[in-house]
Nucleic acid binder design. Structure first.
Length: 384
DNA sequence: CACGCGTGGTG
DNA sequence: TCACCAAGCGT
């Protein structure tokens, strides 16, 4: 708190002292302005960077894993999974020789499961044809599945000191605000500006500091300009381009919940595996899916909401007795799973959420998307 | 190049 | 509460 106040005061002083130069400085065009920008930004980063596990390692594999997990995913959501993933697959070799379902099980809950599959495949490429050595340039990294323009630049700069700017959503927003560039004049000019600003001596730290600035100061909605270390170099001071939003649609989805108790303390849940060629969450386990319109309100165990990209699902979980299995739509991939084994299965996020609410999974993650829970005991003994 | 892919935090 | 969206990639 004290530090924050001092920082604000310090920024204020600088701002006042350089008031007269703002018009020139704000262009960020000359080498002097760019040097000042680097110095201010990196000094701020050195003093305020969050202490994150992947910043405590020089292992290219660990940095790689963190970058894949961080794609479109917030730091807080990654922390937990990162620790579990690295504990289970500490090396490229360990990941490469794992079976895909286990990789998916550890990834379960993070979303974008294709990332896990591609990371797994890429690890097998590195362990195999690259003799275990992670490529050391952005260009070479780009060849691996799951590593695109941003991620290749991030890994190359952070792990190997390659002087290439990493431009993610944060950096794009920061550059647009700094330069007052029109968002339509996008991509290329933003990358050129980021590359021109890049600190050649500390490319990894510079890239992370740009992202950190976007993540904690130069926020999308209400940027904290008073705390910004490069405020006096910024053309817009927080104005930002409006982005068109996509229309969300709402759909219903129904799933069946069946449990049986073979003997005391041996409970099984009926699950089904999604086809391995499904476009969505292929090969992952979920509760038996019921056709739309078949939901009997008397069977409702719980209802919850679940959003997938542009669709909001209103999900109903319906209770059935174990001997009603035949009445479900036919499926080859259905199987009774021991309750204790659930945690080791690659479950879809929705199945995980529902099983947690039903008391069959115990994890750290829980959220407020539960809409309603009925007293299932009122109509049958299915509910624990 | 626009779109599909997941999830949990947040104001 | 709920709409929005966050360290992108592949097609």
């Amino acid at each position: 708190m004290v530090v924050a106040k001092r920082l604000v005061s310090f920024q204020g002083d600088i701002l006042r002292r350089q008031q007269a130069r703002i018009q020139i400085m704000s262009e960020l065009t000359g080498p002097a302005q760019q040097r000042l920008f680097r110095r201010l930004l990196l000094a701020w980063f050195d003093a305020h960077a969050r202490d994150l596990p992947w910043r405590r390692t020089a292992d290219p594999y660990a940095i790689w894993v963190s970058e894949i997990m961080l794609q479109q995913t917030r730091v807080n959501a990654v922390l937990d999974h990162y620790a579990r993933f690295m504990a289970r697959f500490p090396t490229i070799a360990a990941l490469a020789r794992a079976e895909e379902p286990e990789v998916l099980a550890v990834w379960s809950g993070l979303g974008y499961y294709r990332r896990a599959r591609m990371l797994h495949k890429a690890a097998q490429v590195v362990a195999g044809s690259l003799a275990g050595k992670v490529p050391e340039t952005a260009e070479a990294l780009r060849e691996l599945p799951g590593i695109g323009e941003y991620t290749s630049a991030a890994i190359a700069s952070i792990a190997f000191g390659d002087s290439v700017a990493a431009v993610d959503g944060n950096v794009e927003r920061v550059v647009l605000r700094l330069t007052a560039m029109e968002p339509a004049a996008n991509g290329k000019r933003v990358r050129e500006t980021a590359q021109a600003l890049l600190d050649r001596d500390r490319p990894g730290d510079f890239n992370q500091s740009m992202m950190e600035l976007g993540a904690v100061i130069c926020l999308p909605k209400n940027p904290l300009c008073l705390e910004c270390p490069v405020q006096m170099l910024c053309r817009t001071r927080g104005e930002h381009p409006t982005t068109a939003r996509k229309e969300m649609q709402t759909k219903d989805a129904n799933y069946a919940f069946l449990k049986r108790e073979k003997r005391r303390n041996f409970v099984e849940i009926l699950l089904e595996k999604r086809p391995s060629d499904a476009s969505l969450m292929a090969g992952m386990w979920e509760l038996p899916h019921l056709a739309a319109g078949t939901a009997d309100p008397n069977r409702l165990l719980l209802s919850l909401r679940h959003s997938i990209t542009t669709t909001n699902y209103k999900v109903s979980i319906l209770g059935y007795a174990p001997d009603e299995e035949q009445s479900l739509p036919k499926s080859k991939a259905r199987k009774w799973i021991k309750a204790e084994a659930l945690a080791d299965l690659p479950l879809t996020g929705l199945a995980r959420k529902a099983l947690k609410r039903l008391g069959f999974l115990h994890g750290t993650v829980s959220n407020g998307s539960l809409v309603k829970t009925t007293a299932a005991d009122a109509f049958n003994p299915l509910f624990p």
